[in-house]
Design a binder for these strands. Sequence first.
DNA 1: AATACATATGAACAATGAATCATATGAAAG
DNA 2: CTTTCATATGATTCATTGTTCATATGTATT
Lengths: 109, 109
Amino acid sequence: MDEKQARSIEELQEMQPDEEILYDIAELFKIFGDSTRIKILFALESAELCVGDIAELLSMTQSAISHQLRILKGSHLVRSRREGKTMVYSLADAHVKTMLDQGLEHIEE
Amino acid sequence: MDEKQARSIEELQEMQPDEEILYDIAELFKIFGDSTRIKILFALESAELCVGDIAELLSMTQSAISHQLRILKGSHLVRSRREGKTMVYSLADAHVKTMLDQGLEHIEE
DNA sequence: AATACATATGAACAATGAATCATATGAAAG
DNA sequence: CTTTCATATGATTCATTGTTCATATGTATT
């Protein structure tokens, strides 16, 4: 059932998710589509970290990391909380981990 | 178990997947990170399609679609076979569908 | 072989986006 | 309140990339 069969263009058009949804999905994947952000996310899968530690871990500047964290936070992939002078970042939810693992799985075949 | 705990930078470095793996994961997500490609992949989830039909379905030029199909094929996300004058494209494997659905699921919350 | 149809490809252009640099904001300690 | 430490931000630069246009390749039909 739900076998791929011959269908008209019109039928297909109606089956597709809304333009806006498709756009949002692409936007989501775009966030994951940068190695710096991927590294940050995988790091946060191991531990909560502050900006400076992530920068040291990835051997990158604090500024570069901060810029990327801003993007990740804007996309609700990470959370942050203040702890004294430092900001502690962590993955926003389990879904992010699922996405990362899915990507890893696909690569490792 | 596997609780997030305080860890040294050195420990964290050892826990991370290889640089190359992380890069490849980012590259994979990057492919999904374009709305044209997402639309193509979702279309192919419904049916096998030739280039012209995809172009018509998405109201885009044949050339633009062909360029994107080339990228998708290079990343092994779609397959193609010749059928007379037309080339029929389809999703490469079930994993691609899983990724798409994962993205859709994350968006629809 | 010549034509028509379907797809692929290369060059060019425009837009996007990541890193850098300089600087601003914010919190805590003296 | 001034200094220091941690982070954020704005502007700039440079590279990447998606689309377009023109054209090439490939297949079938007559």
